[in-house]
């Protein structure tokens, strides 16, 4: 088996190197990493923008671009990608909010408090935010779900928050399954790119 990954330096708290190392060891895989440094990102930025042809709001896409470059340098043509697993199998923290809301509304209180406790223990802020969204008046809802990115201009922030508005059917979903269906429906086109 061969895998390709990007690893940020240790100062990034979401870095996943120790998990990658463990998989590499147990699967005995050939797994080169790419370490995106400032120099490397800056070097590739122009080319990346040329090929991407649309606005992005994070470094994720550029990082992915570097992973593809790494695979290319290793003479690979076809890769498997795990896109979609988070959307289908409740991989995102905020999704637990749907589950909490659903258990509460169906008066499944024992399960609700158990789940609430887990969410609090895990400091899953996004899950709690989504739960509170369902019990908030309309004018607060936008504030709860969307915070401006400080490195973007107000204009771009407004456009993104407008785009976020199209997600409101998902946020309003009363059950976990409905939320997942709406989410997959909305994201499928993006995931397949």
């Amino acid at each position: 088996m061969r895998t390709f990954s990007a690893v940020y330096c240790e100062w990034f708290k979401l870095d996943e190197k120790r998990y990658l190392d463990e998989v590499k060891r147990s699967a005995n895989s050939h797994s080169p990493f790419i370490y995106p440094t400032m120099e490397l990102l800056n070097e590739n930025l122009d080319n990346f923008i040329n090929h991407q042809e649309e606005t992005v709001i994070s470094f994720s896409q550029l990082t992915q671009y570097l992973v593809m470059k790494l695979a290319h340098e290793n003479e690979l043509k076809v890769l498997l990608d795990g896109q979609g697993a988070d959307e289908l199998l409740v991989g995102y923290d905020y999704m637990t909010g749907y589950y909490l809301n659903q258990q509460l509304r169906s008066l499944n209180l024992k399960s609700f408090f158990e789940e609430l406790l887990t969410v609090i223990k895990r400091k899953n802020v996004e899950g709690l935010q989504l739960l509170s969204y369902h019990f908030s008046p309309n004018f607060l809802r936008k504030k709860i779900l969307y915070r401006n990115k400080k490195y973007l201009s107000n204009r771009l922030n407004n456009i993104i928050s407008q785009d976020n508005f199209y997600l409101s059917p998902m946020y309003k979903s009363k059950s976990l399954t409905t939320a997942l269906i709406v989410n997959v429906d909305y994201k499928l086109e993006k995931l397949l790119r």
Binding site: H51, A71, L79, D81, G82, Q83, G84, L88, T177
Partner: peptide, 22 residues
């Protein structure tokens, strides 16, 4: 596509999507 690489996404096979959502 810049590097001529094709990524396949097994989780988005419609049969799996429909199954998991159900």
């Amino acid at each position: 596509m810049t590097f001529g690489i094709e990524t396949r996404v097994p989780f988005l096979d419609f049969r799996l999507v429909v199954y998991l959502l159900s």
